[in-house]
Nucleic acid binder design. Sequence first.
DNA 1: TATTGTTATACTCTATAACTATA
DNA 2: TATAGTTATAGAGTATAACAATA
Lengths: 180, 180
Amino acid sequence: MAEQAQYEELARQLSAVGAVKRDMGRILPADCPAGSAAVLTLLGRHGDMRMSKLAELLAVDMSVTSRHVAHVAARGWIERLPDPADKRSRILHLTPAGLDRLDDLSRRTTRLLADRLSDWSDDEVGQLIRLMTRLRDSFGDCRSHPARACAATAAPVAATARAAAPVAEETTRTPASTRK
Amino acid sequence: MAEQAQYEELARQLSAVGAVKRDMGRILPADCPAGSAAVLTLLGRHGDMRMSKLAELLAVDMSVTSRHVAHVAARGWIERLPDPADKRSRILHLTPAGLDRLDDLSRRTTRLLADRLSDWSDDEVGQLIRLMTRLRDSFGDCRSHPARACAATAAPVAATARAAAPVAEETTRTPASTRK
DNA sequence: TATTGTTATACTCTATAACTATA
DNA sequence: TATAGTTATAGAGTATAACAATA
């Protein structure tokens, strides 16, 4: 149990962290705003999924998800395949072009963070990740522990590639095309 | 120096923390959106200041600050006094009504956080605050150390009232009503 | 009747640029 | 000429509600 002054300060920090997010947004390609980048990142990290699942991971309304998805699909970065099990549903799948885009995004953010956080220790970054993940959990955010696999410690996407390998609905999906 | 996987995970957490911010935004009064709340909070914490200073603390363009300020001024929560030293400038000052509003906001956020973070220790909250503050610092955010006084440990607004008392351009401020 | 997505509409936040009034 | 603020305009993100297709 923390005290009121701390809660107020935390609220302030949450409000102010927007500046950092905007700073990161500035390094994105013109045709790939933050919303699109988030879609690609999550698909790369968790593998194919339906709209509803993605909306859950993004933590936004499905109508919003639909827009972001339409944007990336229009650019050929993902495909919306029919779901054999439910004709109302669509399976989102990262295309090779999307994978390339994702690698590019990954390089950009890594470069920026490596620069800004050059004097942070590996442990400090890990701490921040852990606490932010917990914060989202505390806010009843089921998106922070997707397949209960990348809660913070598990390998997020490993490196600059193999993204596509799905955390899997626990199994499915052939990790065949492990690489691009 | 952290590794790439960590940077990618941090980027994801930053992107996802928006859900928490939106959750907090939902408890705000209809006529006091997040932008307005931030203006009141900063004025309460740092005392009277000019537009440019507030823009710096908010970490947004002055044009944006101008809009937020116009909104709160229109509701009588702050006054825009003339600056005797520079006729182009305006001194922003919290009114009694603004102070009331601020207290209300403070109670709302505290209540929400106390609920969501009920199982967090005082130390953990402090850690998160400290790391987020440092993160902003690392992003060349001069707003995280305003009067170099509330970097995280210093009392933010003390309690539910006396908000207006400026952190003082280094001294002022009567720690009289230290608690509520 | 309930659910999956999509689309229309509206609101907040932000940035850029042009403009006014001082310095 | 430079600076403090304001306003107009545009773009991104999000939510609610209405609607279509399918369960």
